[in-house]
Design a protein around this nucleic acid. Structure first.
Length: 692
RNA sequence: GCGUUCAUAGCUCAGUUGGAUAGAGCAACAGCCUUCUAAGCUGUGGGUCGCAGGUUCGAAUCCUGCUGGACGCACCA
């Protein structure tokens, strides 16, 4: 919120208090202030419909004219900030002092720079964001991309708003599916040279093949389950400590041997498996365990390479295996305390709101997705004592999370039943109310030409290739004078500005930008209709458009500072407080404003500049909305609008050739726009380019 | 069948949480580069906000029903 709105809020509070005979705090009063749909109506408005909720009797129009009378009588109090008040039907519209508004906002942006828009919550929370979470032995597909970019963006947003964020990648490294992969690995012939080159792809193909074969073959399913059972048993045997000791360890962080505290601590497996020694791995439980470790590590290395490429970082890698170790013990506790019951040989937790049984153990006693998630939430509570934990997972898993959350509600509501297991009770009963499922829609209709799963890397490659083509097109521009190298002019600045390496990395960043923004631009809950033409078009509401806008501002600023050949003197490249204040028309001491505004209301570009600055001023509000709704797309829409406003301005008003006094405040404005664009792009994990 | 979720321009989507005249981008058409990067800008056309009721000063937004789509529903994750 800007100081103009703050001023208005404290201005109307006494009025409402008097009429309402009741205290009203600023947050409540803020809700009365709306932004009119068109700035010609004013900058802020109070719709009198709302006033009727505060003790005003009669028609809204009458309340409006009462407010107008009050405002006019006391105009003195706000005259530094507002220039005009108008009434239009039931609306009372306030017009800010635009020159001052521009000055103040631009100055704030330049002063705060990378921190512009940053917020400080009343109470910083410890927030765990669990996202990406790919399955090992499967390639990183576009399905995981959504979780990855939404999660990473949310992490950035929470951090920017002052919370303590922990980014966790919860690897799908456990379960019957690995029984299947091991079965397949041992059953089929492996092309080991291929396996060395791209192990994850080989493992994925094995999984696909065995999955198909298993459809008409009960034996394969059974074998896979058996192998998984032995895998889980081996893991438990290797980690003999009980849940109680482990929770105590996590709670106190005392030294504790034996159990993994991070997925990266797991064994590395055996990296030189070959046709000669393959059967020695397949034939023993220990060997199969080593295979599992090996597949895990190969996958993690592959994931890390892709994260690196996209600029994604995690604070911790965890794995389902860690929770799998303790799943059996947890189930036992829930059975003894009466939360769980046996049903058809398996163990379930009966829930009153959800009919679908919540399965927490299979009939063979092994763990399930749900049971591992229960354990994980408890382990993390001991480890981190989080205030909030966000799962960024597709909406198709809503039922799973509803079951999970309902189980923790039960554990809280009937926590006395856990009295016999205080170590478990301590953590499990406080989980409820802190878990959030941030779900997102599916990506529909994405397939390769062969109709298969699209690998993320191929997707990025495709986009980068397209970007490289566009960069190349710009190398040679033909015009009426013939063919010229280097954009459309003969300015030395622009000739051959890219080395070959630079061109390649630029194309890659554009490609990544296109891919990421395509996923973050729509509200996360809607399914994304995938369409190659849409993704590979870089015009309009796209990532490259935003990156281009930043590059364009850079280029313009550089030219303004340098001056040009037409005898225009260069503009000084100085930003210090005195300069800023002068540019903003602000006196540092005494009254907040003086009468000299740097951009004048008489300038023909004034209104466009004002609209840009107005958009800049609501950056923080948008970040807060994005945080409250866990919705990065709010920021996407926001910068698209800002970029569009700038591009319109750029196209319609020319700066080069104007005199110094005219250019200077606009140079500050350009810097402010750039700062906001970059801050926003960073929140969306978009690569920022200096030039393109 | 039960549950979750969605339906806004030809296509892809916004829509300030119930407010002023429903907005963008693609695509189509007509323009704008010897002067700040045309991945841009300007203009034109394009709407029964799925359908029917209800709630009230006021509904794309809230409630009910219907239609249509997506997803989920016992030992996968």
């Amino acid at each position: 919120m800007d100081i103009f709105k703050e001023n208005l809020i404290s201005f109307i509070i006494p009025f409402i208090k008097e009429k309402n005979k009741r205290d009203i705090d600023p947050q409540e009063a803020e809700k009365l202030i709306k932004t009119p749909p068109d700035s010609s109506y004013g900058d802020y408005s109070v719709a009198s419909y709302y006033l009727t909720k505060y003790g005003f009797k009669g028609k809204a129009e009458d309340a409006a004219s009462e407010l107008l009378n009050y405002a006019q009588a006391n105009f003195e109090q706000i005259k530094d900030f507002f220039s005009k008040i108008e009434i239009k039907g039931p609306y009372v519209n306030f017009f800010v002092h635009k020159e001052k508004f521009i000055g103040v906002i631009v100055k704030n942006v330049l002063k705060d720079n990378g921190n512009y828009g940053r917020g400080l919550p009343r109470k910083p929370e410890k927030v765990i964001i669990d996202f990406s979470s790919p399955n090992i032995a499967k390639p990183f597909g576009v399905g995981h991309l959504r979780s990855t970019v939404i999660g990473m963006s949310l992490a950035n947003i929470y951090e920017f708003c002052g919370h303590n964020v922990l980014k966790i990648n919860y690897l799908g490294d456990f379960g019957t599916q690995f029984g299947k992969v091991i079965t397949a690995f041992c059953r089929y012939n492996i092309d080991f040279s291929e396996f060395e080159k791209d192990p994850v792809k080989v493992l994925y193909n094995l999984y696909v093949t065995i999955h198909k074969e298993a459809e008409g073959n009960e034996d394969i399913e059974r074998d896979a389950r058996d192998i998984f059972k032995k895998l889980e048993e081996s893991l438990i045997k290797k980690n003999p400590s009980g849940l109680e000791d482990y929770l105590n360890f996590l709670g106190t962080r005392a030294g504790f041997p034996g159990v993994f505290t991070s997925a990266l601590d797991y064994g590395r497996g055996q990296l030189n498996i070959n046709p000669e020694n393959k059967s020695s791995f397949c034939d023993s439980d220990e060997g199969q365990f080593i295979l599992w470790e090996t597949f895990r590590n190969l996958s993690i290395e592959e994931f890390k390479r892709i994260y690196e490429l996209m600029g994604i970082r995690f604070d911790d890698y965890e794995g389902e295996a860690e929770s799998g170790i303790f799943s059996g013990e947890m189930v036992k506790i829930l059975l003894e305390s009466g939360f769980a019951a046996e049903s058809e040989g398996a163990i379930i937790v009966p829930l009153k709101d959800i009919k679908t049984p919540a399965l927490i153990a299979k009939s063979d006693g092994t763990s399930l997705y749900l049971s591992r998630d229960i354990v994980t939430a408890v382990l993390r509570m001991a480890k981190y004592n989080y205030d909030k934990m966000i799962y960024v997972v597709g909406s198709e898993q809503s039922l799973h999370f509803n079951q999970l959350f309902n189980i923790f509600d039960l554990l809280r509501d009937s926590k006395d039943k856990l009295n016999n297991n205080p170590f478990f009770q301590k953590y499990a009963s406080s989980v409820s109310g802190r878990l959030v499922h941030v779900k997102f829609g599916r990506i529909i209709g994405m397939s390769t030409r062969k109709g298969n799963l699209v690998f993320l890397e191929d997707y990025i490659d495709e986009a980068s290739k397209r970007a490289a083509e566009k960069l190349k097109e710009r190398d040679v521009v033909s015009n009426s004078a013939g063919t010229v190298t280097g954009f459309s002019g003969n300015d030395e600045n622009k000739k051959d500005i890219f080395t070959l390496d630079e061109k390649e990395s630029t194309a890659l960043k554009i490609g990544i930008g296109a891919v990421i923004f395509n996923d973050l631009k729509t509200r996360r809950n809607t399914d994304v209709n995938f369409n190659w033409d849409n993704v590979l078009s870089f015009e309009g509401q796209t990532g490259p458009y935003l990156q281009y806008t930043v590059s364009r501002i850079n280029s313009l600023i550089a030219r303004l500072i340098k001056g040009n050949d037409n005898g225009v003197s260069p503009v000084e490249n100085r930003v210090n407080d005195a300069e800023l204040n002068a540019a903003a028309g602000i006196k540092e001491t005494g009254t907040p404003f003086d009468n000299t505004a740097a951009v004048s209301e008489r300038d023909n570009d004034f209104n466009e500049i004002y609209l840009i600055v107005k958009q800049i001023s609501v950056f923080k509000d948008n970040i807060e909305a994005a945080l409250n709704l866990n919705e990065p797309s709010i920021i996407s829409s926001y910068i698209l609008e800002l970029a569009s406003l700038f591009n319109k301005y750029y196209q319609n008003y020319r700066l080069i050739g104007r005199d110094y006094e005219y250019i200077k405040p606009r140079l500050y404005l350009l810097r402010a726009i750039k700062i906001v664009l970059i801050n926003a792009l960073k929140l969306l994990c978009m690569p920022v380019l200096e030039r393109m």
